[in-house]
Write a protein that binds this DNA or RNA. Structure first.
Length: 152
DNA sequence: GCCAACGTTGGC
DNA sequence: GCCAACGTTGGC
């Protein structure tokens, strides 16, 4: 089982939305690297941190479980969706999503500013300058370190 | 295939 | 709102 970090803007879809819904289709990925990771590496049963991005307190808000394997993202065919891709054909979908299930909401978001101060996390992609991938891998050690912070 | 222009991401 | 980083587009 692998670990991941998945970004979402809380103004669009927050950890509290996932807590309420129980599960959701992680749609809107429009980056080939991320698509390929979902398709080729991510597996049902993997777990991920839910990251709040582009907000007043970016950081880790909780955890989720990958509950469904990569499948075509229907929003790419929806002209009213911001993720609409007119160049993608239903017989050859360009964009994929995975289904995810709520696992846990942290009592408080672990802020990015705190993560930056922890040497064991220095290699996490989300802390690297210029990182823009919406899904990135997390090592076992990083997973444990962050969970310990959540429970501290 | 090169590369400049442009768009998006996302922390600050 | 600023701006660095980086992916994408499209002319050549």
């Amino acid at each position: 089982m692998a670990f991941w970090l998945m970004k979402s803007e809380p103004g669009v879809y927050a950890i509290t939305d996932l807590e309420r819904d129980g599960h959701t289709a992680w749609n809107g990925v429009r980056n080939y690297q991320v698509r390929n990771m979902m398709r080729d590496v991510m597996r049902v049963g993997d777990r991920a941190f839910f990251w709040h991005s582009n907000c007043s307190c970016p950081g880790i808000a909780g955890t989720l479980v990958i509950s469904g394997a990569a499948r075509p993202d229907p929003t790419q065919f929806d002209p009213r969706s911001p993720g609409h891709d007119p160049a993608s054909r239903p017989d050859a979908p360009r964009w994929l999503l995975v289904d995810v299930a709520f696992e846990r909401r942290f009592a408080v978001v672990i802020p990015l500013s705190r993560l930056r101060g922890i040497p064991a996390l220095a290699r996490m992609p989300v802390l690297q300058r210029g990182n823009r991938l919406s899904i990135t891998p997390v090592t076992d050690a990083e997973w444990r370190t962050c969970l310990a912070l959540a429970d501290a």
